[in-house]
């Protein structure tokens, strides 16, 4: 059952991921990305990682992509549809994708955990929210705080840069 679900959601995820790249309408691409996130969340659920799954939907599908869609809808989509892709862009994109795939396959080939099956959770009612919370705020508190400050600095920087009149 779990295996069947894994295949269903992985295939959905990959199909929509292809849609992000190949669909010509930017709104369709954005919506495909939303569906990719939702399918990815479903794969997390089959791994009993409910918290990660929900955060995936909440943050990416529910917040980030809404803003993306917001921006895309303000673009002139007709001009976007008729835009020609130059051969140099094809070449550059192909190089990047090929290099990335080569690097990823290198890593996967040398990854010992790949051939282990996932051990069953000893306690099915394990509270993963508490687990993530304790790990983040107790064991890795300092790195977490530093990342928080980093994000705050970035936000302040964006606000400053987006102001029209810089004195």
């Amino acid at each position: 059952m779990q295996l069947a679900l894994f295949w269903i959601f992985s295939i959905l995820m990959l199909a929509f991921a292809l849609g992000v790249v190949f669909l010509r309408n930017p709104v369709s691409s954005a919506m495909s990305l939303v569906m990719t996130f939702v399918a990815l969340a479903a794969v997390f659920v089959t791994l009993d990682a409910f918290f990660i799954a929900v955060v995936q939907v909440l943050v990416y599908a529910g917040a980030v992509m809404v803003l993306f869609l917001f921006i895309i809808m303000l673009l002139d989509l007709r001009a976007e549809k008729h835009r020609k892709v130059r051969p140099s862009a094809w070449l550059g994109g192909g190089l990047v994708v090929g290099g990335f795939m080569a690097a990823i396959s290198q890593v996967i080939a040398g990854w010992s955990a790949l051939h282990q099956t996932k051990p069953e959770l000893s306690d099915p009612s394990f509270n993963d929210v508490a687990g993530v919370g304790f790990t983040l705020f107790r064991d890795f508190n300092l790195p977490f705080q530093i990342i928080g400050v980093l994000l705050l600095v970035a936000t302040v920087g964006v606000v400053l840069l987006s102001r029209k009149e810089l004195k």
Partner: peptide, 10 residues
């Protein structure tokens, strides 16, 4: 589910 409310928001 033990993440009830987060599911509602998501």
């Amino acid at each position: 589910v033990n993440i009830g409310v987060l599911y509602v928001f998501a």
